[in-house]
Amino acid sequence: MTLLLALFALTHAGYLAAGWSIGLLAIGAYALSVLVRGRALSKRVPLSRQRWMNSLPDEDEQS
């Protein structure tokens, strides 16, 4: 255990692990929140107005 701690101190592994995990977790959490917000909102909007669903005809194109 102490050896592991010493190794951490020597190689900066603790800083590395903390930096990478906090950084990636933050971005991941944000991405998730965007997806959740999108899901909640898209339930309230008709399919015809979600144009990135490119399988659907773009009926509002003319207007």
Binding site: V34, L35, G38, R39, S42, K43, R44, V45, P46, L47, S48, R49, Q50, W52, M53, N54, E59
Partner: peptide, 17 residues
């Protein structure tokens, strides 16, 4: 025509494509 459609029930559930 937006009101005429108003088919919110079968709306997509994500922002993905």
């Amino acid at each position: 025509d937006f009101f005429a459609v108003n088919s919110i029930a079968d709306a997509s559930v994500s922002t993905g494509s």
